[in-house]
Nucleic acid binder design. Sequence first.
DNA 1: CTTGTTGGTTCACATAGTGAACCGATGGAT
DNA 2: ATCCATCGGTTCACTATGTGAACCAACAAG
Lengths: 266, 266
Amino acid sequence: MSTIAKALGLLDLFSDARPRLGLSDVQRLTGRDKATVHRHLVALEQAGFLEQDTSTRAYRLGAALTRLAGMRVRTVPEVEMLRSVIDDLSRDAGELVHVSRLQGFDLVHVHHAEEHNHPVRVSFDAYGLPPLFATASGKAYLAFAPGGLLDLALADPRTQLPGAPAPNRMEVEGELKQIAQRGYARNRDALRLGVSSVAIPLFDAASRAFATCSIAYPTGRGGKATEAHLARLLMARGEEISQALGGSVPSHIVQLWTPAQERAAS
Amino acid sequence: MSTIAKALGLLDLFSDARPRLGLSDVQRLTGRDKATVHRHLVALEQAGFLEQDTSTRAYRLGAALTRLAGMRVRTVPEVEMLRSVIDDLSRDAGELVHVSRLQGFDLVHVHHAEEHNHPVRVSFDAYGLPPLFATASGKAYLAFAPGGLLDLALADPRTQLPGAPAPNRMEVEGELKQIAQRGYARNRDALRLGVSSVAIPLFDAASRAFATCSIAYPTGRGGKATEAHLARLLMARGEEISQALGGSVPSHIVQLWTPAQERAAS
DNA sequence: CTTGTTGGTTCACATAGTGAACCGATGGAT
DNA sequence: ATCCATCGGTTCACTATGTGAACCAACAAG
């Protein structure tokens, strides 16, 4: 293992729960020699990746990180950031994966990836603006967005499928509550006949829902089991996808998305 | 020089102007051996600090940076982030340095540092809310804030010193224009008799003005020369201060703040 | 077909990293 | 006041790790 990897690995020891670490803490957590750990910490500090509190002598994440992260979001287009994660997810699921960002109440296309495993698969046009209430993505967003938004969305005619009956406010509220508890939204044949999908929200740096990721699959292919399987895949990568865009998922939702056995293991 | 420092130094080669670098680019820029550079790049990539474009094979800043940067802003209080920069600035200037954030049209105290070089120095209470138009900070903010704000600020009575004549809209506009050209705002005896100050805006991650940094000094001490000297110190650190808070200064303002001889050198 | 790029790999060599032992300071317990 | 544990940090002999000249394969322009 390269010394570079060892040193950079130290940064991963810091977390929201454990934002400040002393020399001995790091030494214990890594099992490495104190002298080694110290030299690594000093090197990271000199590069600005760590800062040392002058009074407690504890280390915390440094300013160079925000500087470089800012550079990344400015110079790397969203699509590039998403590519590898979304490709992986599409490969694992064997279905069409789709990321949209919210602009007002429009779901605008950001990126998609499709895998050609199945003979029958979902295809779609990337630039249509589907109505919020007719998609799993739209409902996933509303279920995790701040409260007031629902009324505004209901008032906007563009959020509904033309010709369809207006959604009942009580019913919708009930469904969103279910989604918030379950961790993902689902949809069967609502937007296009024969197409089902599951979706989760994505969160920005301030942990606000601002985009969504969905998997679409032919309704014919799967019953409850398929839906649950795809939803699991989606939720398992939910945090990674938000992070790829520079966001962070609120901890209670990370928990919701983490399978029970994994939670027990950690 | 430690290999860790060498590897981390590679990240600094990336910039807004040069966001993607190939192996040979990095080799040229550093003068190090190609094999060495390559191993460093791979190590950084494996840690997520770099990503390699699969088609062009060029490297760009990676997702680990945004993840860690997010952690930093969540876990490290603003005051902690500012401390070292502001302390340095206060030491260099030998005067009181002051950082405020805008909440509506209130300048709320974030952090300050005072140096005890001079026998006569400015002291102040940290928690007063000075009127926007009576301070260098307030004017620095307005001069670099989006246009519509000025009218809203003029309409708000709290932005003006009680008892003072209402500011003339044309005059104010002219002054803000001057400030925008000069790069900093100034103030003599407006808020408190015998106290002058110079101020610059601070920018957030989206490059919007959201806070200010000012240096206060006794009017008696300095004429034009002192003011210019302190303003230079302030502007020289302007980018660093914004960055400490996770923001980034628009490039045209960085230029405005960079002395002519330094610009020629780089 | 040459010539000059590019990204990447190999291996003998020496430099840079390692860790046991040590130091001084701090903070409880006794 | 003394002991003991723990803290952050340093030293130095030893060797594992990093280094760089030489070497590929692939690609593009002349």
